[in-house]
Design a protein around this nucleic acid. Structure first.
Lengths: 150, 150
DNA sequence: AGCATTATGCAAATGATTTGCAAAATGTCA
DNA sequence: TGACATTTTGCAAATCATTTGCATAATGCT
């Protein structure tokens, strides 16, 4: 979630003209406290205007390509999208609930990851690190007693 | 990869009768040094015998459910499968090459992950942690000069 | 052998994403 | 402003990974 970002200028500095659709999609991604699926974004946007699903996919691809947003593996079959890490939003781990399929952001302080050794010795190029915890979220736990003793 | 495991007994202790197909699929997963997709496993198995793709999926689901193997997000659209961590194979991070789509295992020593704080304070149940590095592997780097200065 | 249970195959469905192509919108420049 | 190139969007269909439903085959048990 970001209240400090000017999405318009983010687009411009990323070599993307700030078209209405791009802006709206970036706002939806940025104003949410969790990474959303393309479907989530499509549904949200559809509530206020007509837009094609393919357009959503294409804009998401573009934003990922320019490094504005991150494509995040959810643990399920669909990708989720969140603002790319920057000064205001440090890189952080996510939690995936295998029951409701929601992905949530975790505090970056909670996880200390030391990968210097790998970065030093890995023969390829490392562009991104993803840390994801999987399990059952609080809400599903309450609704699903049988998981409470795992 | 595992040279110390008796797959037959692993199946038995997991409440699964060691049918030929289950054994072969577990062997393919276990004898490989990287997590494979269902498609990889299907193709490998198909070289030596007739088997249906759906059967492969079903056996993989079963092995995951019983905790024998792990379903791992690849960074691409398909899941990959590797032996679940145990005494012989500690949990370890993976590297996904966005060009060739291969997933490889990284040394567990290379990554230090401290998640005690999250585990202590998270309101849901955490069952699994996945760490994945994304980028371009050594081989694709060699074949794709344009990525060598990223 | 007879019957229940389990495992497999096959066809089709589903869900997420991508592609091809054409129409609409936008930008550029004389 | 008009003509033309470029970019953005929509629509239909394709693709890819995975799942479902249902029928048959294999296996286990008494």
């Amino acid at each position: 979630m970001c209240h400090h970002c000017n999405y318009n200028s983010i687009l411009k500095t990323s070599e993307l003209s700030p078209t209405p659709n791009r802006l709206k999609i970036l706002e939806i991604v940025g104003n949410n406290n969790r990474p959303l699926s393309a479907q989530d974004i499509f549904e949200t946007l559809s509530r206020s205007e007509e837009i094609n699903r393919v357009t959503v996919y294409r804009i998401l691809d573009l934003l990922v390509e320019k490094g504005v947003i991150d494509r995040i593996s959810s643990g399920g079959r669909s990708f989720h999208y969140g603002l790319a890490p920057n000064k205001n939003h440090p890189s952080h781990p996510h939690f995936y609930c295998k029951l409701c399929g929601n992905l949530e952001c975790l505090n970056p302080e909670g996880v200390h990851l030391e990968i210097e050794q790998i970065i030093r010795t890995f023969p390829g190029v490392i562009e991104k690190v993803e840390v994801r915890l999987d399990g059952v979220c609080k809400i599903c736990l309450r609704n699903n007693k049988k998981f409470s003793n795992h």
